[in-house]
Amino acid sequence: MDLCKEARKELKLTPDDIPNTNKAADTVKRLLNNLATIVQGLAELRNPYGTGHGHEGRARGLQPRHARLAAGAASTPALFLLETHRDAKRKAPDNGS
Rank of each mutant, 00 (worst) to 15 (best):
M1V: 05
D2K: 15
D2Q: 14
D2F: 11
L3P: 03
C4G: 12
C4N: 13
E6L: 13
R8G: 13
K9H: 14
L11R: 06
L13M: 15
T14Q: 14
T14Y: 00
D16V: 02
D17Q: 06
D17S: 15
I18S: 13
P19G: 04
P19E: 04
P19T: 13
N20L: 08
T21G: 07
N22I: 07
K23S: 08
A24W: 08
A25P: 01
D26Q: 09
T27P: 01
T27S: 10
K29I: 13
L32K: 05
L35R: 00
A36S: 10
I38P: 02
V39D: 02
V39Y: 04
Q40N: 11
Q40R: 10
L42N: 01
L42T: 01
A43F: 01
A43H: 00
E44V: 01
E44D: 09
N47S: 06
N47A: 13
Y49P: 03
G50H: 00
G50T: 04
G50K: 09
T51Y: 06
T51R: 15
G52N: 07
G54Q: 14
H55L: 04
E56S: 11
R58W: 00
A59I: 02
A59C: 01
G61T: 09
L62S: 00
Q63R: 03
Q63S: 06
P64E: 05
R65S: 10
H66W: 02
H66Q: 10
A67Q: 12
A67Y: 05
R68E: 13
L69E: 03
A70L: 07
A70T: 01
A74H: 07
A78D: 12
L79Q: 11
L79P: 03
L81P: 01
L81Y: 13
L81I: 03
L82D: 10
T84L: 06
H85R: 15
R86I: 12
D87K: 12
A88T: 10
K89Y: 03
R90A: 09
R90D: 15
D94Y: 15
D94M: 12
G96A: 05
S97E: 12
